[in-house]
Amino acid sequence: MFVNPDVAADLKDLSTTLSSVEAVMDLDGLRTEIAELEKQAESPSLWDDVEHAQTVTSKLSHKQSELRRVSDLRQRLDDLEVLYELAEEEADAGSASEADDERARLRKDIASMEVRTLLSGEYDDRDALVTLRAEAGGVDAADFAEMLLRMYLRWAERHGYKTDVYDTSYAEEAGLKSATFRVTAPFAYGTLSVEQGTHRLVRISPFDNQGRRQTSFAGVEVVPVVEQADHVEIDEKDLRIDVYRSSGPGGQGVNTTDSAVRITHLPTGIVVSCQNERSQLQNRATAMGVLQAKLLERQRQEERAKLDALRGDGGSSWGNQMRSYVLHPYQMVKDLRTDFEVGNPTAVLDGDIDGFLESGIRWRRQSES
């Protein structure tokens, strides 16, 4: 029994929260699913169908990671109780301080895992396709779009998530007109979908020789990656397909063949492109996957709009502006929906966005309930 009742109460609260996470995740069911996937993975004929094999092995890896993550949290909590007991028995201030630090880390990690259980949407567990676009603000907006691309890629790198940049369209002076990339990770779409909307940057423009303050905007679009089970019909007659040479910053060519592919879906006006592969055939296949994902998301948005109209949901005077990055006259990044804010834009733009993601996921769940 702990001498410190506050510590005992906090550990009990952490255990209760973790128990609710374990219940939602259904650990027995998760173990059964892992056993079934392991059985499939051991089949000699698994790799006869490469795409199916990749799906099985990827899903197995993700499920094993989820089980290991929550099991590690429970073990850490058990170890922490022992550490506190030893610290109190031996009146060891150093061990008590070490236990306090671990308790703070554990609280953060359990809260992060709790947020994961809120991702229960139809496509939340899928990989994400993210498209960034420079909006109002000229060269500053293009530079801001490139800053956001780096922010998301650094976030993925911090977590060990695989990313593939499919297309980058460079602006003439600096930055990007647009970019599309894929994040391959458990619940990548559910996590990153709260980033969708308009991001706003306020700073002293490095491109203004008079050093004036500039406000610029960049748009973020997030859609789930399409799977074989999804029904997305595309008529070849509705497509215009152009091929061109991939280009880098300043318009310089990065290869000598017309391998980059741009596909325009004529009925909707959706344009997608891919230039990261050497083969025109590979680029076309990747671009078609992106187009299917965007059309699937368009169908979902149309269905959601009908439901919103029936519910009488109105628009917002802010439009879809969702986050401000202020570098001058003060330093702050603030989410306009959740009011979550931090005073270190440098860290945020270097990929430290988990706080924003978690507060956004909680906000969305509250808005839906």
Rank of each mutant, 00 (worst) to 15 (best):
H62E: 12
E85C: 04
E85P: 05
E85M: 10
T57F: 03
L18Y: 13
L30R: 11
Y84E: 04
S15Y: 06
D10Y: 06
P44V: 13
A93P: 07
E85V: 06
A41M: 01
D26A: 08
V70H: 06
E51S: 13
L80R: 01
L86D: 00
K63S: 12
V21Q: 11
H62M: 10
D26F: 00
K63N: 12
D92F: 05
E66C: 06
D78K: 12
L73A: 09
Q54H: 15
D79P: 01
D26E: 05
A53S: 08
E85S: 11
D28F: 04
L30Q: 09
S19K: 14
D26C: 00
S58N: 15
L18I: 11
D48M: 11
E33G: 07
A87E: 02
S45N: 15
V24H: 10
S61W: 06
E51G: 07
R31W: 05
E85F: 01
W47V: 06
A8V: 08
K39W: 04
V24A: 12
A93Y: 03
S65E: 07
Q64M: 04
Q64W: 01
E42S: 15
W47N: 11
D48C: 06
H52P: 05
W47L: 07
S65C: 09
L77S: 02
D92V: 00
A53W: 04
E42V: 09
T16G: 14
Q64F: 03
E88P: 08
L83Q: 05
Q64S: 04
K63D: 13
A91K: 10
V24I: 14
S45M: 13
L14G: 00
E90T: 13
K39E: 11
R69L: 09
K63V: 03
D72C: 03
D78T: 15
V50D: 12
S58E: 14
D49I: 05
D92I: 05
E90P: 06
E81W: 05
V50K: 07
H52E: 07
E88Y: 04
L46I: 13
G29M: 02
L37K: 02
S43M: 07
P44Q: 13
E22N: 11
L37H: 00
V70K: 05
L77E: 01
A91I: 09
V21T: 10
E42I: 11
A35H: 02
K12P: 00
R76H: 12
Y84F: 13
S45R: 15
S20N: 14
A9N: 10
S19D: 15
E38M: 03
D10V: 04
L86R: 00
D48R: 12
E90I: 03
A23H: 10
Q75G: 08
D79L: 05
K12F: 02
L83Y: 02
L11S: 03
L27R: 09
L86P: 03
G29A: 08
E36G: 05
A91F: 06
S19W: 08
L80W: 00
V50I: 15
D79W: 00
A93G: 08
S20Q: 15
A8F: 07
E85D: 11
E22T: 07
V82G: 01
D28T: 14
E89Y: 09
S65T: 14
L73Y: 06
